[in-house]
Amino acid sequence: MKKTLFIFAVLALASCKKEDTKVAEPLYPTNTEVVAQTPVELGEEIFKGKGNCVACHQVDKKAIGPSIQEIAKIYKDKGADMVTFLKGEGVPIVDPSQYEVMKANFVITKAMSDEELKGLEAYVYSTIQ
Rank of each mutant, 00 (worst) to 15 (best):
V59C: 05
P29T: 10
L42N: 05
I46K: 06
I46R: 10
K78H: 12
K62D: 07
E116F: 00
K87T: 08
L11G: 14
D60N: 13
D77G: 06
A122I: 06
K61F: 12
G65S: 07
K3I: 12
A12E: 04
T30K: 09
E33P: 02
Q37R: 14
E116N: 07
Q58P: 00
F47Y: 14
A9T: 13
I71T: 07
T4N: 03
F106D: 03
I93Q: 00
V34R: 04
G49H: 02
S126P: 06
D81Y: 06
A63V: 00
Q98G: 08
K17F: 06
Y125H: 11
V34W: 05
I46L: 15
F6A: 02
Q98N: 15
E89G: 08
D95S: 14
G88Q: 06
E70M: 06
A9D: 02
L5V: 13
E45R: 14
T30G: 01
A14K: 02
I64R: 11
A36L: 09
E89C: 03
Y99L: 15
V101W: 13
K103Q: 15
K17D: 10
F106W: 07
L27N: 13
V94Q: 05
E41V: 11
E115C: 01
E70G: 01
I7Y: 10
F8E: 03
T109C: 02
K17T: 13
A9P: 00
V107E: 11
E100R: 14
G90L: 05
V34Q: 13
P66Q: 11
Q129E: 12
